[in-house]
Design a protein around this nucleic acid. Sequence first.
DNA 1: GATTTTCGTATTGTCGGACAACCGGAATTT
DNA 2: AAATTCCGGTTGTCCGACAATACGAAAATC
Lengths: 241, 241
Amino acid sequence: MTNAFKPLEREPAYLKVFKAIEARITDGSLKDGAFLPTEGELCDQFGVTRSTVREGLRLLEQTGLIVRGPAKKFYIRRPDSADIAAAASKSFALGGVTFREVWDTLASFYPAAAKLAATRLSDDDIAQLKAVRAALEAAGAKDHEATVAGAVEFFQHIARGLDNRVMLALLQSLNLMIGESLRHVIAGAPQAKDRISSAQEKLIEAFEAGDEVRAGEWMAKHIDDLKRGYDVAGVDLNEKI
Amino acid sequence: MTNAFKPLEREPAYLKVFKAIEARITDGSLKDGAFLPTEGELCDQFGVTRSTVREGLRLLEQTGLIVRGPAKKFYIRRPDSADIAAAASKSFALGGVTFREVWDTLASFYPAAAKLAATRLSDDDIAQLKAVRAALEAAGAKDHEATVAGAVEFFQHIARGLDNRVMLALLQSLNLMIGESLRHVIAGAPQAKDRISSAQEKLIEAFEAGDEVRAGEWMAKHIDDLKRGYDVAGVDLNEKI
DNA sequence: GATTTTCGTATTGTCGGACAACCGGAATTT
DNA sequence: AAATTCCGGTTGTCCGACAATACGAAAATC
């Protein structure tokens, strides 16, 4: 019997609202920065009640497609890499990934990123890296927070300098995760600051020289070094983040 | 004047509902698979109306923390890598990233992943890779869909075999994005299937031998080859996905 | 005339109640 | 025992309402 009726999926109205608005954002008819109509107007346009519209708006909100502007009105915003990264790392945390998984990923991906960085970082990017390193040097040896911040910021600037939003988002979500775990490591590893700083120095040199191979090698060493800090600090790599 | 009052953030009740439930999921007091109370019960417990509760539920729903079960009831589910990947790649699409960005990322990250795969894939994983390749071989030369599917599935299995959820999610979101773009390339590149298949063969050999270096090299070649297909197909790499 | 104050209005956040549609399971029939 | 019917619980949607807030314009002040 071929003339059976289709499953007839009924889709809740709030989902339709969500998809309708989402579609108009993706196809560009609602441009970035434009204000969304008020809830009341949306009710009229969609022919549903405010409760329903509001449920749809909550979906858009969580997706990151709209944010609250002045006067509480919503406006359109395409999610940027930072949002993607934040959402991803949050999900990871919920999923209970281990330190080992994060570090393994770092060790695999960042050397490759460093290679690319050697060919792609601008003079300005490199200057910023130097600034980050200088700030790290200036910080007190016992200032663990500054050490963590310096290490993470260095990664951040490299990711940003790659001029690639996909890579940026992926690396940023890693950066968010290592920030937390580095804190544990550094407090328990005495000369962490010096080792980090000297690795950064070598990396900057490689970037300046445009030396891909050296950049990749030093990044690998740098990360390996950070990871080794776990043993020193006595942290179990299989612990959940 | 230092004693000014701070902005005094008042957060909407629906956000509190969201955070409250989210917290109980993350801290484990609501376990994976458990059913959420009904909307009515939540109203009683939180002391708010259903409209409010429902807005909170929509947030949880979009975050991927809860899904609908039988009888429409919600149950708890920790987002897995596929969800993270899907969400991320969707956001990327909205952000209007270019093919070039995706391919650059592929070219940077996948060779590193292949190296790891050489040391980590189980015999079972490799058997599956062989199966994927066999299916690709069996497909007709003109069956572009099968070719795309074969190429993407090969990537998928590698990612899954790495035994690392973070890497899996990141690579999966890349896989989702290349699927679409590969379709364009392959239709316009005659011997794409053969080249893909032979690259897969070399990769499998390297994986079996546990030869990291060779695996990385062939993966780099493989991706480079796919990318070159763009020229042949006449696709502009700077086009948005 | 420029600045401050006041005030009205639009919008959001929340409420309470209402009803149809739907699902699952119990009660009933066959 | 199997199929059918029925019923209560739950969701999806609607309506109407109100307080709180934020904005912009009108009014008052200097």
